[in-house]
């Protein structure tokens, strides 16, 4: 971490604390030590791409950030709020972090528009009309306002993932997390989802993205993190990590996925 601190500083974050601060994070599944002491700071407006081999704990890591998984040791702060067992803190943090899943996880029994308006109405107590207006704004932003009345099952994978992005955005989070958002998609649909994410990145959103789309990483990431066996093995700008990886493990892994 120490060697990357000055890089982050070089990008003008020197005075600020991160919007997400993680210190010495450990997690076990039973006896299995999944996360082995992860420390990381993510700054407001930053785009962080996380990659690494399967089973290295990438999903588990970002899922601890909004308490979909509980951690056993270490501290997590999101926008100054400490993530503890306190249900109010959990709710507060969840309403600041939007999440997009690999398998979309849209609610199949609700129409597209109802998928998007449900949480703003129940959690943010918006009226049906206000939530509807908001939902339509985000549907336009992801480019599919005409699908509002359909059910998720009637949409293509790419369209479903864009609805999932709109659904998360409608809660107006400060941070968006993506867990391999394109790996369940057919090749021709990957671009339409990445385009939406690029546009979102340009709007200044803080983003944590688990992905192996290196083109996307090169284009939008401020920093990239390589995970292996529950640890951060390498962190730095895309140029550093992709072109001059310091660690043998990173080189091997990049060689595998870039061929």
């Amino acid at each position: 971490m120490a060697q990357t601190g000055d890089k982050a500083n070089g990008q003008g974050h020197e005075e600020r604390n991160g919007i997400i601060v993680v210190r010495e994070l450990h997690k076990w599944f039973g006896d299995f030590h999944v996360l082995r002491g992860i420390s990381m700071e993510i700054y407001e407006g930053e785009k962080m791409v996380i990659f690494g081999p399967s089973g290295s704990g990438k999903s588990t890591f970002i899922r601890t950030l909004n308490r979909l998984e509980e951690h056993q040791r270490g501290d997590i702060f999101v926008d100054g709020i400490e993530l503890s067992a306190d249900i109010r803190n959990i709710d507060a943090i969840r309403s600041e972090i939007g999440m997009v899943f690999q398998s979309f996880n849209l609610f199949p029994h609700l129409t597209v528009i109802d998928n998007i308006t449900l949480a703003p109405m129940l959690v943010r107590h918006l009226s049906k009309d206000d939530a509807g207006t908001l939902a339509m704004q985000y549907l336009e932003r992801v480019g599919i306002p005409e699908q509002a009345a359909k059910y998720p099952g009637q949409l293509s994978g790419g369209q479903q993932q864009r609805v999932a992005i709109a659904r998360a955005l409608a809660m107006q989070p400060k941070i968006m997390m993506f867990d391999e958002p394109t790996s369940a998609l057919d090749p021709e649909m990957i671009k339409e989802v990445l385009d939406v994410m690029v546009e979102l990145a340009e709007s200044g959103m803080t983003m944590i993205v688990v992905t192996h789309e290196m083109g996307f990483a090169r284009q939008v990431a401020d920093r990239m993190v390589m995970f292996d066996e529950g640890k951060v093995v390498e962190i730095g700008t895309p140029k550093e990590v992709l072109e001059h990886p310091r660690h043998e493990r990173t080189k091997q892994f990049l060689a595998q996925i870039l061929t």
Binding site: N66, R67, L68, D91, R94, S95, I97, G98, M99, F101, N105, L106, F107, L118, A119, L122, V123, A164, R167, A168, M171
Partner: peptide, 10 residues
């Protein structure tokens, strides 16, 4: 459930 929880639903 995860999607609903991530949206902050009770």
């Amino acid at each position: 459930l995860e999607a609903a929880r991530a949206l902050g639903m009770r």
